[in-house]
Design a protein around this nucleic acid. Structure first.
Lengths: 341, 341
DNA sequence: ACGTTTTCCGTAAACGTTTACGAGAACACA
DNA sequence: TGTGTTCTCGTAAACGTTTACGGAAAACGT
């Protein structure tokens, strides 16, 4: 079943060195023998043993994406990432790299699993998501000198790694601008914990835009909860208890918006009629909710492709002749106007 | 940075064989030297090179879960699986095994990626999900003699692999029973393509229950679409165009239910008032939708743990002294009555 | 015809482990 | 004291690759 390079060599009566060279497309092998080797490889159903290659080359030819169930998020997952992963995987595959997703246990925020991946050299590089404002994973990886890239910005580490992020700040501001233009002045913001950097950025944009419009930022209109349906459901009533309740709410997450809308419904408040609702990151849920939620849409799949390019360009072993380059990009979110505001 | 077993040996002035035995808890090593080895391993920050181990032992100590964006499901992912993966990962970790999730490109239904994992021996076993009624992946794996387990049943392959599934048949029947008891006789079923085995099972239970109640199965009340929001949105109007429209709809998927409810809303039909809606697999979406959707809930995390046990027990290399055993289990879905029916 | 280059291939070492085997020392027992 | 057993460790091979090195044969140039 498991045919090795030795089997091929014996079968063809040539040395394993030649077989290897033929397989790897090296120049110093006769075109004819190469043909015969490739043919034999096919008939003997040969494919190289990954462990052997890795051991010899010191490279695993795979990139790890760290997936972590967020604490308090046991039940719901991260559908958000799937299109991103599709793009990432497609681009990596072009360079012969495998994408593996490494699951961590909920709670430890990946440190343990990350160490494991790095120390046992299971991957040549890792991709981090949901970066925090201060992110110990980034500190660890830079200190360990392990190649990585992030989906999302962070203040941690020297700026010596490629990163790709969405412009949450501008999206927050755009959302406010739009609502103000439609006559709202009491605008609430509901978001997850601020150490998730995108929540911080969003809130920053929200605040600045309000001030720009001469509207005072009211702490009573800002609430934070778990980044899932339960979180939105739980904290939305908080902002409604203000003496001067909001006429619009911006949710920083689709799942939180779903939970928040349920809380509103229980109070007899209908999104799109009695309350303007905007969501910062669009998903199919926003589109198919009733009413359809106005939301800001990311280009997730192209982002995945782009981050793959950036990661590869930053790794000396993979980079082209121009050598490693570090890049940081921030991509826009596009407004999709629907029925909820 | 990367300290090897040789570094330890040199540092302690003993042979690499002894170091290895000490690290692996073998009996034939002095308690004192073992101490010193473990200590040195800690101070030198040693951890074994995975490729080296794998190559020597012929085992990777990792299990692959094949994750596949479903065709037509580009945008939305599989939040459904996350709790399952949490359970799976937790149990595998107890045996020192890593769980890696392998992404495939959308469309090729995993065959290519699966071959790659198997042939390059990247994992010791794989876990398959979303089994089809006739599943070429299962045929391939059995033929290749590669260990695997499935979440979901299939008719493919000899019954020589462990599998765990939900009792969709009973859930379909229970859903019908409940609706009939509440006075409904025109009950629609909306489900994904039938080669997804769970859809087949669900529809079977639905049909049998209707007949048991003396209700004729009306093909006009059965529709199938993509297993996402768009699918539900698209096909729900079909069943509504019946001369004798349904008074109840059973959705075989939460995302399809979301899309379906949107279609209903656009027709001025309110779930829970003008239409009874039941969902077969419960997710947080069902709970936080307005109105909250009556649904059948699986115990996903325990199922993940259980399948891990079953898989390990079926692999000779991991199984206990009693040797490999094949198991197949079907777990119940629990009704969660809410406001939509 | 002779030196030089090119083409092609075999040899063997190396990557980091694990493990079968055997040997020396210490110990037990008569 | 001699024999057998137990503890502990070193030696070396093996897993499947890749690749530096060198050499034989062929091709080339004058």
């Amino acid at each position: 079943m498991a045919s090795s390079i030795h089997d091929l060599a014996r079968h063809l009566n040539i040395s394993i060195g030649t077989v290897s060279r033929a397989l790897n497309g090296r120049a110093d092998v006769n075109a004819d023998t190469r043909q015969r080797v490739l043919e034999a490889a096919r008939t003997l159903n040969y494919s190289p043993n990954q462990s052997g290659r890795s051991l010899r080359q010191g490279a695993t030819h795979s990139i790890a994406f760290m997936l972590q169930p967020h604490p308090g998020d046991q039940q719901y997952g991260e559908p958000f990432f799937i299109p991103f992963l599709i793009g990432l995987q497609a681009k990596l595959a072009e360079s012969g790299l495998d994408l593996i997703v490494v699951m961590g246990a909920p709670g430890d925020y990946q440190q343990e699993r990350l160490r494991r991946v790095v120390e046992t050299r299971r991957a040549d590089a890792v991709v981090l998501a949901w970066t925090r404002r201060e992110d110990e994973r980034i500190d660890y990886l830079t200190q360990a000198g392990f190649p990585f890239a992030t989906l999302g910005r962070s203040r941690s580490g020297a700026k010596s790694y490629p990163s790709l992020d969405l412009d949450f700040e501008k999206a927050g501001a755009d959302a406010v601008d739009r609502l103000v233009a439609r006559g709202h002045r009491r605008i609430a913001a509901i978001r997850p914990s601020l150490n998730l950097n995108f929540a911080y950025l969003f809130l920053d944009g929200y605040r600045k835009a309000l001030r720009r419009h001469g509207i005072e930022v009211d702490p009573e209109l800002i609430a934070s909860g778990f980044i899932n349906e339960a979180g939105g459901y739980e904290v939305t009533p908080h902002v409604m208890r203000s003496k001067d309740p909001p006429t619009a709410i911006i949710f920083n997450n689709d799942a939180m918006a779903l939970g928040g809308c349920k809380a509103l419904a229980e109070m007899g408040i209908r999104p799109g009629h009695d309350m303007a609702v905007t969501v910062i990151v669009d998903t199919p849920l926003c589109r198919y909710f009733s009413p359809a939620l106005t939301a800001f849409r990311p280009a997730l799949e192209p982002m995945g492709q782009r981050l793959a390019e950036m990661l590869l360009a930053s790794i000396p072993a993979f980079a082209g002749p121009q050598g490693p380059r570090i890049m940081r990009e921030v991509w826009p979110l596009e407004l999709v106007a629907r029925d909820s505001d």
